[in-house]
């Protein structure tokens, strides 16, 4: 479950970064988005499972 969140976060926000990269012609938004997604996923995992 937690693994799914990490993959999902990296894939979704990384994908968003990739799309923005293509649109704006940059190349730093994909890794930035992936890291942001992982951070968000970790926040969610802590939130959901720490007090459970």
């Amino acid at each position: 479950m937690a693994f799914g969140y990490l993959v999902g976060g990296a894939a979704f926000y990384g994908g968003l970064g990739w799309l923005l990269d293509r649109w704006l012609g940059t190349s730093f938004l994909l890794p930035l988005g992936a890291l942001f997604g992982i951070a968000l996923a970790m926040y969610l995992v802590f939130k959901l499972y720490l007090h459970a």
Binding site: G4, Y5, V7, G8, G9, A11, F12, Y13, G37, L40, A41, L44
Partner: peptide, 11 residues
């Protein structure tokens, strides 16, 4: 979007 992505697509 993260939840949707991880439950419906990644899972």
């Amino acid at each position: 979007p993260l939840e949707f992505f991880s439950t419906v697509i990644v899972r």
